[in-house]
Simulated assay, not measured.
Amino acid sequence: MRNFTVDLNPHRSVTLEATVFDRPLDSEQPTPLEHPRPAVIICPGGGYEFLSQRESDPVVASFLAAGFNTYLLRYSIGEHALGPNPAVDAARAVRWVRAHADEHGVDPTRVALLGFSAGGHVAGMLGTHWDDADLVAAERAEYEALVAEGVAANSGLLDFDSRPDAIVACYAVFSMDWVDRRSRPGLTFGDCIEAVSQATPPTFLWTTNEDATVPPTQSLRFATALAREGVEFEYHHFDRGAHGLSTATPLANADRAALPENAHAWLALCLAWLRATWVSR
């Protein structure tokens, strides 16, 4: 197993932290391990002000245990969470994983983009705007500038598709119409609900009825939009559980005395859904 960090945009401290399984040796044929593997790009939440630790390492560990290569995206936050920046970061991450799929033993047709809360918004922005001409133009301008500066990780990325093969959105933000816009970054592709189309990737989403930070109606409205456009999706609305549950296990919630009885089921449901969705294509 290898761990390494890719600098995608040093100006905004955007990185991709990879944990990938070693490729099987030529002598290991047939390989005893799945090869090539599915991949998941993880976007932690944090209200675009920080990146949540509980939604980082425990999630990486869970997907590694399920046989995924994992990539933790540290996208643009704080003063950098403006305009198209987070969506460009997500697009770049998907393109980069596909560009290095053979090297890392990844199946480039099984790349999921997973996000929690604000990270779910990042995933939603790319899932609904990946083919937007303005987003592609913003990507191109940024990539060319970074390559000229010597940031080699950006070279040739536009040769690869940025559309994720699935979106996983956990108690996610999908629009800014429920908050004071002055308290949130001005994101070019901020409304994901109205932007859902038949080209939106298959989506798994879940939330809880007790979430007092992001209204659970955000997920319900997004699911309704997916149904309207005929996009394949699975939606779970758990009755109990506060915001920020991550895997809803003690590993990710050492600061909480008690956890809801069944929200942890989202992970097994999601893993089963991902594999079934990809097999059925």
Rank of each mutant, 00 (worst) to 15 (best):
R182V: 09
R184K: 14
R184M: 14
R184N: 08
R184D: 04
R184V: 13
P185L: 08
G186L: 06
T188D: 00
T188Y: 01
F189W: 08
F189E: 00
F189H: 02
G190F: 06
D191C: 12
D191A: 13
I193Q: 06
I193R: 08
I193A: 09
I193F: 11
E194N: 13
V196E: 03
V196W: 00
V196D: 03
V196M: 00
S197L: 05
S197M: 03
Q198K: 10
T200I: 10
T200E: 04
P201Y: 04
P201T: 01
P201M: 02
P201F: 07
P202W: 05
P202M: 10
T203K: 00
T203E: 00
F204S: 00
F204C: 01
L205I: 12
W206M: 04
W206N: 00
W206C: 03
T207C: 13
T208W: 03
T208K: 00
N209H: 14
N209M: 14
E210P: 12
T213S: 11
V214E: 01
V214Y: 00
V214S: 02
V214D: 02
P215W: 09
P215R: 10
P215C: 11
P216S: 05
T217I: 13
T217R: 15
T217H: 15
T217K: 11
T217E: 15
Q218K: 05
S219P: 07
S219D: 06
L220S: 13
L220Q: 11
L220D: 07
R221N: 14
F222E: 04
F222W: 02
F222H: 03
F222I: 03
A223L: 02
A223Y: 02
T224A: 15
T224C: 07
T224W: 04
T224G: 10
A225R: 06
A225C: 12
L226F: 07
L226H: 03
A227I: 09
A227P: 06
A227T: 15
A227Y: 10
R228V: 08
R228Q: 14
E229W: 13
G230T: 08
G230C: 11
G230P: 07
V231G: 02
V231P: 01
V231T: 09
V231N: 01
V231E: 04
E232I: 02
E232D: 09
E232W: 01
F233W: 01
F233T: 00
F233H: 12
E234S: 11
E234W: 03
Y235T: 10
Y235D: 02
Y235V: 00
